[in-house]
Structures are given as C-alpha cells and as structure tokens.
Amino acid sequence: MPTSDVETRLERIESRTAIGELPILYCLAMDERNTTGIRALFTADATMRSADGVFSASGIDAIVDVFQGRFDALGPTNHVTHGHVIRFDDGDHDRAVGIAVGHAELVRNDVPMVTALRYRDLYRRVDGTWRIQDRLMSYMYYLPASEYSDGLGDPNSMRAYGDRRPADWPESLHAGDASWLEQFWS
C-alpha cells in the first residue's frame, strides 16, 4: 500500500476520533454549565440553530450568550449521546458532516423533563483542531417526565415552552425534505 494512502487513512481515523468526541464533550459542557468548554467546541464563526427557530445564534459570543440564558432556566441536566455518524468531504479535507442522536433528562423551569434529540452538524478543522461550525438541533419529543407515556406518540410532543408544539420529527421528515440524510447511507 502506498505511504500516502496509509497516511490518508490514518489521518481519517484520527479525525473521526476527534470529531466523535465533540458531541460527548458538548454534553459534558452542557451538564457542567461550562461556557469555556462551549467556546472550545465551536469555531469563532459558528452558527447554532433549532429546527423550530427558537434557538438561533451566529458567532461564538452569541452562542455562549444564548447558552447562558438556557443555563439560567435549567436545573440539573444529563445529556447522553447514543450514536454518531460522520462523513468527510472528499473535496475539502478540513470539512465533515455528521449527525449525533441522543436524549436528555433535565429540569426546566422546575419541571423534570425528558427529550429525544438529534444534532445535525457541519465540522471544520481550524488550526489542526476539529470544531463544530454549524449545528441544527431537532427534537422528537421534549416532555415533562409526568407526560412521557401519553406524550410520546403525540405529534405535538414539543412542550419545552409550556405549550404544545409539533415535534421536529418523525412527522416532519415525511412531509419535508430529508434528502440531506442520503449522504449517510453511502
């Protein structure tokens, strides 16, 4: 095997490991309210959004400010990732995309809640370090723990804001454009 091929493959393995740690480190930073950690995970020009449009921030300072506001409304949290798929951009070795799936147990405005979430990410290597450049959060449910058994099948299972709103998925995937997911099957 040519040396350049081995080096390329090794670089991909190292990059996959580094990128794979980002969602876990994000969960830890969230649970520890560590804004220094949040800053270290995102590029300076990062964007972070939620599918429902409630969360939208551009630039690391704005992202940290929005998180600080969230931290003020949250009690204890436990974010957990369950899986992560990464695809590299063959035309740009400093770019990759990924989707991380997980859940969180949390207290929001003194109400114990559970949520199933997905992070759709764009990763960028900056000065040799992989970071999140864009993150889109979406939710299958965000329910008070007391409503979990009844709310799980409800299409309006997004209750983070005190009212009933449509979930971001799975219903929206059938009605909307899920073609971005096709890149993960190859």
Rank of each mutant, 00 (worst) to 15 (best):
R16V: 05
D168G: 12
V64L: 02
S172I: 04
F42S: 03
E21L: 12
D5Y: 14
E32M: 07
V101S: 12
S179W: 00
Y161A: 12
G102A: 04
F55W: 13
A100G: 14
Q183V: 15
A29Q: 05
D52V: 04
P2L: 09
L152V: 13
S4I: 09
M113Q: 07
D72C: 02
L22V: 07
W130T: 10
V111P: 11
S4N: 03
D168R: 04
R131N: 09
V126L: 07
D134C: 02
R9L: 14
A160T: 01
L181E: 10
A175H: 15
H84W: 06
Y141C: 15
M113I: 03
G98D: 03
Y119A: 12
L25D: 08
D90F: 06
S186V: 10
A40K: 03
F42H: 04
S58N: 11
G102Q: 06
H84T: 00
R165G: 09
H79Y: 03
D61Q: 08
D121P: 12
D168H: 05
I63E: 01
H174D: 15
L152S: 07
A178V: 03
P112Q: 04
D127L: 04
W185R: 15
L25E: 10
A51F: 08
G102F: 00
A46F: 08
S15E: 11
D92N: 14
G75N: 07
R125M: 01
D31R: 07
S157M: 11
C27I: 01
P2A: 09
A175R: 15
Q133T: 05
S138W: 02
V97D: 08
G153E: 13
D45T: 11
R164Y: 14
V80L: 09
M1L: 14
V97F: 10
G69M: 01
Y123A: 07
T43Q: 03
D94F: 01
M137A: 14
C27F: 10
T81K: 05
R12C: 00
G128N: 01
A167W: 05
W185Q: 12
G75C: 03
A57T: 02
Q133G: 14
R120P: 00
A18Q: 07
R131P: 10
I99P: 03
